[in-house]
Design a protein around this nucleic acid. Structure first.
Lengths: 184, 184
DNA sequence: GGAATATTGAACTATTCAGTTCTGTATCGG
DNA sequence: CCGATACAGAACTGAATAGTTCAATATTCC
């Protein structure tokens, strides 16, 4: 049978993700990834084809984790879910600020095509979930159009987390935005 | 008197800016900057202290150019200006997509402190200009709060320009958003 | 022509990077 | 103990990186 593996693929992804999250793809070195995961370079290359492969795997892992939170599927559907999405979607746990997926958009030029696909698919899914929640509230405007708007606002809040303006600023903005949404 | 300079600082900035804009700081090499500006490495280092210095200078140059467009100062102040800001603020000229300033936020971790300062100050200025335009329309909600919201939406639209969703998507979103704003 | 300045290009340092390979060792099941 | 697998660590390749320095050349005014 041989010696069992001392690390799981998931553990590696969980530890590598924050590094990519903070530094992006270009500015993350294999040294940093070794240090963060505790796995030797040889080990990393036995599990992943190359740095790009590891990055995309992290991205997928992140998005799966976000899906599991189910912020937009709690019953009953409605503004409450949208508010939870805007409030708790962009994280702020130590080094991990905003949204890994939104951050990645900036680097599409050098990222593998898969990265673009993964992000685009996830956004399409979010758009649908948002639209469903909005539709439940029977607004006068087109739910799909509102959903697009919400997603853009979300992206903005995420990217602004890189500023040192503090979390308070974005919660205030979100509160204002939600008040507006509920009036539609 | 000696030989006159064959390039001006401004020319260099104008040509270097799109490179940083597209590739960011980390993924832009001096080779690319030489090629884009047509100026030798020695020349670049005679004009700028290092790569970071050149980057910050580009950022400033970009923001000055945006200021000169005066999208938010046209009289009379009002929603028209806000709409112009959202519509024509995020550029789409060839390689230059979205907003250089918003793009830079992603790299604050590795950028010099100046970069953060420059961007933060510009955002504060934008926020004020937006608020002034909004106030002119006498909405029921607090103009400053609305301005914050607009700025976040703007950031989102900019960052989403990295997707291949096309320009049509963002003009539609902006139209929706403007309709909402005018109802406040 | 001559003094002064600008520009180029290349050589050079020293570092970092991704990626590969190999060796020794550790750990399992049988 | 044995065969099989897994791991750590280091050595290594080959390329790219930022940044410096210098010599050769070009262009201007006087």
């Amino acid at each position: 049978m041989g010696r069992p593996k001392s690390f799981s693929r998931e553990e590696v992804l969980e530890k590598a993700m924050p590094v990519f999250w903070k530094h992006g793809f270009s500015d993350t070195s294999l040294q940093e990834l070794e240090r963060a995961t505790g796995v030797n370079k040889s080990g990393l290359y036995s599990e992943f084809r190359d740095k790009q492969d590891l990055f995309v795997a992290c991205l997928r892992h992140y998005l799966e984790g976000q899906e599991k939170r189910g912020l937009l599927t709690k019953e009953p559907l409605g503004w409450k879910n949208v508010e939870a999405f805007l409030k708790h979607g962009p994280l702020n746990k130590g080094e991990q600020k905003g949204c890994f997926s939104v951050n990645s958009m900036r680097e599409f030029a050098i990222l593998p095509h898969q990265a673009h696909t993964v992000v685009a698919e996830n956004r399409a899914r979010l758009q649908q979930l948002l639209a469903r929640n909005i539709e439940a509230e029977k607004p006068r405007m087109d739910p799909s159009a509102i959903a697009d708007m919400v997603l853009s606002f979300f992206s903005g809040v995420c990217i602004e987390r890189n500023l040192k303006s503090g979390k308070g600023a974005s919660t205030r903005k979100t509160a204002t935005f939600m008040k507006v949404l509920r009036s539609l």
